[in-house]
Amino acid sequence: KENSSGKKKGKSSITKRGRARLRALLFRAVMPMVAKNTEFKALHQYFTKRSQNPLKKKQSLVALCGKLIRVLHTLGTKHIPYDANDVLGPVRQAQIQMAA
């Protein structure tokens, strides 16, 4: 969310909506994934270094929390093994290649 008033554009921050413990757990799970998992590391690098609309580090980690929960939901509902190519997808792989 963004704190803005009239012509002044304020800082954007994480909303405190939803389940606080789940949000904290996801954030704690994403931190080592960015350090160890190559796909999440590449996404974090892309989000923070892209030329148009680069994210700050914490904003990128929050975006990756959403990505992690979508990946876990897909793995659980479809009962498929983890595949790195499915995590990034062809479009995101092309964007990462263009940014590198």
Rank of each mutant, 00 (worst) to 15 (best):
E2I: 05
S4N: 02
G6S: 01
G6K: 05
K7A: 07
K7I: 00
K7V: 09
K8Y: 03
K8S: 00
K9D: 00
K11S: 07
K11F: 04
K11H: 10
S12Y: 09
S12T: 01
S13G: 04
S13A: 01
S13T: 12
T15F: 05
K16T: 06
R17A: 07
R17F: 03
G18H: 08
G18C: 01
R19L: 13
R19K: 13
A20P: 09
R21Y: 13
R21H: 14
R21M: 15
L22M: 15
L22P: 02
R23G: 00
L25N: 14
L26D: 09
F27L: 14
F27K: 02
F27V: 00
F27S: 11
R28E: 13
V30S: 12
M33K: 11
V34I: 14
V34D: 10
A35K: 08
T38L: 13
T38I: 11
E39W: 09
F40T: 05
K41N: 14
K41E: 09
A42V: 00
A42N: 12
L43E: 06
L43Q: 00
H44T: 05
Q45S: 11
Q45R: 03
Y46C: 02
Y46S: 06
T48L: 06
T48E: 01
R50H: 04
N53V: 01
N53R: 10
P54F: 03
P54Y: 01
K56L: 10
K56D: 07
K56N: 10
K57P: 11
K58D: 14
Q59P: 06
Q59Y: 03
S60G: 10
S60N: 02
S60A: 15
L61E: 13
V62T: 10
V62S: 09
V62H: 11
A63Q: 06
A63E: 04
A63V: 05
L64R: 04
G66A: 07
K67P: 10
L68Y: 12
L68P: 15
I69M: 14
R70I: 12
R70A: 15
R70S: 15
V71E: 11
L72W: 12
L72P: 09
L72M: 14
L72H: 06
H73C: 03
H73M: 10
L75C: 05
L75Y: 08
L75R: 07
L75T: 09
L75A: 11
L75P: 06
T77P: 01
K78Y: 14
K78Q: 15
H79W: 12
H79G: 12
I80Y: 10
I80A: 14
Y82L: 13
Y82T: 10
D83N: 05
A84C: 08
A84V: 00
N85T: 11
D86W: 04
V87G: 05
G89C: 07
G89S: 03
G89T: 01
P90E: 12
P90M: 07
P90W: 03
V91A: 08
R92V: 08
R92G: 04
Q93M: 09
Q93P: 07
Q93V: 07
Q93E: 05
Q93N: 06
Q95F: 11
Q95N: 05
I96E: 01
Q97H: 02
A99K: 08
A99P: 03
A100C: 04
A100M: 07
A100S: 01
